[in-house]
């Protein structure tokens, strides 16, 4: 599946705010949107979800007309804005119950989905969503949004406010979702989600463009003003930045990369 946006200009009260944007978002890889606060990342997600109507340009799914309602799930930055039921179970099962499934299948499906998102049904089913911790709320919101398996899943800063373990657990689930759905994630920490095959749409005033993860990393390592990556990563790999196969931003991958590069250099000599 491929969601394409062409010549898209986002407007507010008919005044152009961002664009033109050209981008494609595929299933099978993770699509990230990055940019400074207030640059229009969340608005772009809302536009794809059909909530922001003030724009020109085209949004198409597999080159066909794209109807957001029923095809898109959007998890807002604030998980509480998605809650309106009185228990975690009801919250997650809501979409299934309105789609007319029978009670048993709703129960089974919801419980298995809760387990997938790390929410033990026995522990969490009857809890009031607002009383959960920040990380748990986010899991509930994401589980509630994705249970109907819509074609397109839009996540607005899904890892914000979580500890490192929580972030890596969620990143793993999000990556697994991206194999079957078009997953588009707005984030301020692309390094936590980025994979070799990820696409990064970088929204900025000068040149909004879409990059492969290696292109993005290489540009950011060469020019820290382009996008600030962790200092240890940039300084370690600055001399390798001319290559487009830079490793992902984690210590293990960088160590492996350096080792293989040094081995290749040694065998070349």
């Amino acid at each position: 599946m491929r969601l394409s946006i062409g010549n898209l200009v986002i407007k507010f009260n008919d005044n152009p705010f961002l664009g033109p944007i050209e981008a494609v978002f595929d299933s099978g890889c993770l699509n990230l949107i990055v940019g400074r606060s207030g640059c229009g990342k969340s608005t772009l997600l809302k536009l794809i979800a059909g909530f922001h109507k003030d724009f020109t340009g085209a949004v198409s799914l597999d080159e066909d007309y794209f109807e957001p309602e029923g095809n898109v799930a959007l998890a807002f930055q604030n998980p509480e804005s998605l809650f309106f039921n009185s228990s975690v179970f009801e919250e997650i099962a809501y979409s299934l119950s309105v789609s007319g499934d029978n009670k048993d299948s709703i129960k089974n499906h919801t419980e298995s989905w809760m387990k997938k998102w790390g929410l033990d049904p026995e522990l969490y089913s009857n809890k009031y969503p607002y009383k959960l911790s920040g990380g748990e709320k986010r899991r509930v919101a994401l589980a509630a949004c994705t249970i109907l398996s819509p074609k397109i899943i839009l996540l607005d800063e899904p890892l914000a406010g979580l500890d490192r373990v929580g972030q890596s657990d969620l990143a793993e689930i999000i990556y697994s979702l991206s194999q079957e759905h078009i997953v588009i994630v707005v984030t301020h920490e692309p390094e936590l989600l980025m994979q070799k095959d990820s696409r990064i749409l970088y929204l900025n005033d000068k040149d909004t463009a879409q990059y492969s993860s290696s292109e993005f990393l290489s540009k950011a390592v060469i020019d820290n003003d382009f996008y600030p990556l962790p200092e240890w990563y940039s300084s370690t790999l600055r001399s390798y930045a001319q290559f487009y196969d830079l490793p992902m931003v984690n210590a293990e991958a960088v160590a492996e990369y350096l080792e293989s590069y040094n081995n290749e250099s040694a065998s070349g000599n």
Binding site: F51, E69, S81, F83, F84, A144, C145, I147, P150
Partner: peptide, 14 residues
Amino acid sequence: DRIRIAQIARGAKL
């Protein structure tokens, strides 16, 4: 209105 948006955001067809 928030709930209506939350329902659509979950992929539910209203």
